[in-house]
Structure formats: C-alpha cells, structure tokens
Amino acid sequence: MVEIERIAWTPEQRALWDRVAAHPFERSDHALDFTARLARDHGWDLPFARDAIEEYRRFCFLAALSDTPVTPSEEIDAV
C-alpha cells in the first residue's frame, strides 16, 4: 500500500490491515508451503503467486470494509 493512502485510515482500519498483512503464507520450515503449492497447482512462478497473495490481502481488507458485495478476480479466488 502506498503510504499516502494510509494517512486517512482510522485506527480500526490500520489494525485490520496490520492483521491481514501479518498472516504468514510462506514458512521457511515447510518445503511446500502455501505459496509454493499455489504456484505449483496453478502453473504460476513464485513471484506471480506472491503478487496474487498480496492482491488477496488487499481484497480481504477491502471486502471487510465494503458496504456492498465484492467479487474477486480469478487469481484472487484461486488464492
């Protein structure tokens, strides 16, 4: 997220983002963690899988704050 966007966040929004951003999708103690499985199962390279996970984080954040239903892209839905 761009820092300028965070300036207008409420403390609750900032706390929500911190929780979403902190979720560990990759674990060095697992040979085939979530990110690696996601990449393997969808034929993606690791950088693309990592980008998709970051988009998923943003989607979750926005979905939690939205007053209307939101629909994920195919990649976000795969995550």
Rank of each mutant, 00 (worst) to 15 (best):
A39E: 14
F59E: 01
I7K: 13
R6W: 01
A49L: 09
E26A: 08
R6P: 08
P72M: 12
W44P: 03
R14Q: 12
D18K: 01
A39C: 08
T10V: 13
E54I: 00
F59C: 05
A52N: 11
E55T: 12
A21K: 11
A22N: 02
E55R: 12
A8R: 13
F34W: 13
E5K: 11
L32Q: 06
A31Y: 15
P69A: 14
E74V: 03
L38K: 04
L32N: 11
T35H: 04
D33I: 05
I76L: 06
F48V: 03
A21M: 07
Q13W: 05
F34P: 06
R57V: 04
C60Y: 04
D51F: 12
P11C: 05
T71I: 14
I76V: 15
E3M: 00
A64M: 03
A31E: 15
S73R: 04
Y56P: 01
R58E: 03
E55C: 10
A78I: 04
A49W: 10
F61A: 05
D41H: 12
W17A: 12
A31W: 09
S73A: 13
E54P: 00
Q13D: 08
A31T: 14
S28I: 08
D77H: 10
E74Q: 15
R27N: 08
A63M: 09
P24F: 09
E5Y: 15
V70C: 07
E26K: 06
E26C: 03
P69H: 09
A78M: 02
A78N: 12
M1E: 10
A22M: 03
F25A: 09
W17T: 04
Q13T: 07
P72G: 07
L46A: 04
E55M: 13
L62D: 13
A8P: 07
D45R: 03
P69F: 15
H42N: 15
A31G: 08
A22G: 09
D41F: 10
E55Q: 13
L65A: 03
I53Y: 01
P69C: 12
E54R: 10
F34S: 11
I7S: 11
A78P: 05
A31C: 06
Q13S: 12
L62E: 14
R27E: 13
E75P: 00
R27P: 00
L62N: 07
P72S: 12
P69Y: 15
M1K: 14
D41G: 08
V79G: 02
G43A: 05
W44D: 05
H23P: 01
D67A: 13
R57F: 01
F25M: 09
W44R: 03
D18E: 11
S66L: 02
T68K: 11
E75F: 02
C60W: 02
H23K: 10
